[in-house]
Amino acid sequence: MSWIDIGALADIPERGARVVKTELGCVAVFRTAEAEIFAVSNACPHKAGPLSEGIVHGRRVTCPLHNWVFDLDSGEAVGEDARIATYPTRIAAGRILLDGTALRKRSAA
């Protein structure tokens, strides 16, 4: 694992998200609670809706295009046979860290 500091926790509002650009597309970084972060693929497998723009509730997000709901922890779509990629995250001293190794794997794929 190689942890990359991508920004401050305070840069993402609670129940909000921001994107991080990577080689092969955007990763959506969600803040579901005061100190809880998830990173997943930003593209909904249905019609590529930008998940980072969805409404965040509990540990879930609803896609803004057609209301598919995803669990951010597992990446599974609720009630659909689909899933999105999830990436390890860490919070340290108020900063958000993403695992560079996992993101490069995505790039290589």
Binding site: I4, I6, G7, D11, I12, P13, R18, V19, V20, K21, T22, E23, C26, V29, I96, G100, L103, S107
Partner: peptide, 14 residues
């Protein structure tokens, strides 16, 4: 305005 930009751009780093 900040909230409309990506939080980070790792493509630049690479």
């Amino acid at each position: 305005a900040q909230s409309y930009t990506p939080l980070a751009d790792l493509t630049l780093e690479a």
